[in-house]
Amino acid sequence: MRPKLYALAALGVCFAGPAAAQAYDPNYPVCMQVYGGTLTPEYIDCSFTSLPQCQASASGRPATCTVNPFYAGPKPAPRSRVHPRRHHAD
C-alpha cells in the first residue's frame, strides 16, 4: 500500500508546475503589467506611486496599469519617545 502512495506522490510532484513567487511589491500602490506575445503578463513592475506615472511609462507599450492588490499602505510615522516633563510644586 505504501509504495503505491509514494509512487502517486512522486507522480504528482513530477506533473506540478513551477511555483511562482509573488510579483507584487507591497511598497508601491500601482503596478504595470507588460505583455509579451501572448495575453499573459511577461512581467509585472510595481514601482509606481500613481496611475498617471505608470500610464506615462506604459504609453506606446503593450502594457496596462493596475492598482496593486498587495499594497500595504503608507508606513506609520515613528512614535516619539519624548515624555512630557512634570512640574513638581516646591
Rank of each mutant, 00 (worst) to 15 (best):
R81Q: 13
A16D: 03
V67W: 03
V34R: 07
D45K: 06
G36R: 13
D45M: 10
R79E: 11
R61K: 15
C46G: 05
T66F: 04
C31W: 00
F48N: 00
S57Q: 11
Y43C: 02
G73K: 03
P41C: 07
K4H: 12
R2L: 14
T49V: 08
A58F: 09
A7K: 10
H87C: 12
C46P: 02
Y71T: 00
L11M: 13
I44V: 13
N68S: 00
H87N: 04
V30Y: 03
T49H: 14
P3Y: 15
P78H: 09
A21R: 11
T66W: 02
P74M: 09
F70M: 04
P3R: 15
L51R: 14
A58L: 07
M32R: 03
R79D: 08
V67N: 02
N27K: 06
P3C: 08
S50R: 11
G17L: 09
Y28I: 01
C65P: 09
R2D: 08
A77M: 11
L11I: 11
N27G: 00
D45G: 06
A58H: 08
A23K: 01
L51M: 15
S80R: 10
I44H: 02
P84Y: 05
Y43Q: 09
G73Y: 01
F15W: 05
P62D: 10
A10C: 14
F48I: 06
R85G: 14
Y28L: 01
R61E: 06
V13G: 03
P3S: 12
A10G: 15
C14D: 00
R79M: 15
S80P: 04
A58D: 03
L5I: 12
I44T: 12
G60Y: 10
A21Q: 14
L11K: 10
M1N: 12
G60Q: 11
V67L: 04
D25E: 06
R79C: 04
P76Y: 07
G60H: 12
K75A: 13
R85F: 07
G17E: 14
V34Q: 02
Y71K: 00
A21I: 04
Q33L: 08
Q55V: 06
S59M: 13
A9P: 01
C14F: 13
K4E: 15
A20P: 00
I44M: 05
V13W: 07
A19S: 06
Y28A: 01
T38F: 05
C54V: 01
A23P: 08
T66R: 03
M1S: 13
L11S: 10
R61P: 07
P29N: 05
A20L: 11
P84V: 04
A77Q: 15
A10L: 14
P74S: 11
R81K: 11
P26G: 02
T49P: 05
G37W: 12
T49M: 14
P26T: 00
L39S: 14
T38V: 04
D90A: 13
H83K: 10
R61I: 08
C31K: 02
P69F: 06
L11H: 04
F48D: 00
Y35L: 08
Y24E: 02
T38P: 08
M32Q: 06
R86D: 02
S47D: 06
N27C: 00
P84A: 12
Q22N: 09
Y35K: 02
C65H: 05
P74A: 09
A9Y: 05
A9I: 15
S50N: 09
N68E: 01
A77S: 13
T64P: 00
R85T: 08
P29F: 03
R81Y: 11
P76Q: 09
A72S: 12
